[in-house]
């Protein structure tokens, strides 16, 4: 049986190979275009960053990363991500739950609204908060009177980041939960499970890969966000500068090597994200195969 399938596969491969009859020249040109594109837009910049970062030696590289201002920026970036991601997980779950499991007036409107942060320029997203909470803003005087700092401080940065990254988790979960419907939840409730038990034991396991995927995208964006944060941060060194803002400042000060060194951190973050994304996809497909095969 296995032999027969193997043979059939080989035959299919041969057919597939025979149907690729483009002349070598065309194949060569197509491959070359793809390669050139990759080199120019991906490999070259990465090499430049790495080379630039190490231009003054490994010692300088680590110095650039460990100077107090850089460390403060890294800390702030992590802090913002740590606050933002759980908030957006909560929001994403709530929004997806509401949209997938219930019917209500304004459902379509809410679905569109969730995409808003994607369609608005990040700069505008930041500006909104300055206009609302800033000194000249609507709530500015009241906030000042009560000594609450939002703009040009951590709360503002978090708010802007939350806004910009809010669609990631929700967008991953909505189609998933809509496709799954709520029959399994009904079954759980009828078997005596409480709302929490149903969520933890039935809903969450069914959406865990989608949720993780959304969390990773959300984290990556939260750490890399520049535009919105740039508007609300106020660029106070060591206080309200995140890593992307720090890179910009270093660059503007012509400290190219340091700028590249910090950039390499963000670049590594991108690689980690990609690796995690692949790992999750692989794990997910492995699990589905495991449950689908006898």
């Amino acid at each position: 049986m296995a032999g027969a399938t193997g043979l059939r596969k080989r035959a299919a491969n041969q057919v597939a190979r025979a149907s690729v009859t483009e002349p070598p020249l065309v194949r060569g040109i197509l491959t070359a275009i793809a390669l050139i594109f990759l080199v120019v837009f991906l490999i070259l910049p990465i090499t430049v960053i790495v080379a630039g970062a190490l231009a003054k030696g490994v010692q300088f590289y680590f110095q650039a990363l460990t100077e107090p201002v850089a460390l403060a920026a890294a800390r702030l970036t992590l802090l913002v991500a740590v606050i933002t991601v759980p908030l957006n997980v909560l929001f994403g779950l709530a929004a997806a739950w509401a949209l997938a499991k219930f019917d209500f007036v304004g459902k379509k409107f809410l679905t569109t609204l969730i995409d808003l942060p994607f369609s608005v320029s990040p700069v505008i997203s930041g500006l909104i908060y300055v206009l609302v909470f800033g000194a000249q803003g609507v709530l500015g005087p009241w906030l000042q009177a009560h000594d609450i700092k939002i703009v040009f401080a951590l709360p503002g940065i978090v708010l802007a980041t939350v806004f910009v990254t809010s669609p990631f988790v929700a967008r991953e979960l909505i189609p998933l939960m809509q496709a799954q419907g709520n029959e399994e939840e009904n079954a759980a409730i009828i078997l005596g499970a409480s709302g929490w038990q149903t969520f933890w034991r039935v809903t969450l396991p069914n959406i865990k890969w989608g949720l993780l995927y959304g969390v990773i995208l959300c984290t990556a964006r939260a750490m890399g966000e520049f535009g919105a944060v740039s508007v609300v941060s106020g660029h106070i060194r060591g206080l309200t500068n995140t890593l992307p803002l720090h890179v910009e400042i270093l660059y503007n000060e012509y400290s190219f090597t340091a700028a590249f060194a910090v950039s390499s951190l963000l670049m590594m973050l991108a690689f980690v994200t990609l690796a995690l994304k692949h790992f999750i996809e692989w794990q997910h497909s492995r699990e589905t195969n495991l449950t689908a095969e006898s």
Binding site: E183, E184, N186, A187, A188, R201, V202, N206, T291
Partner: peptide, 8 residues
Amino acid sequence: FQHYALFR
């Protein structure tokens, strides 16, 4: 349930 609704 009609479509069984087993916990997948």
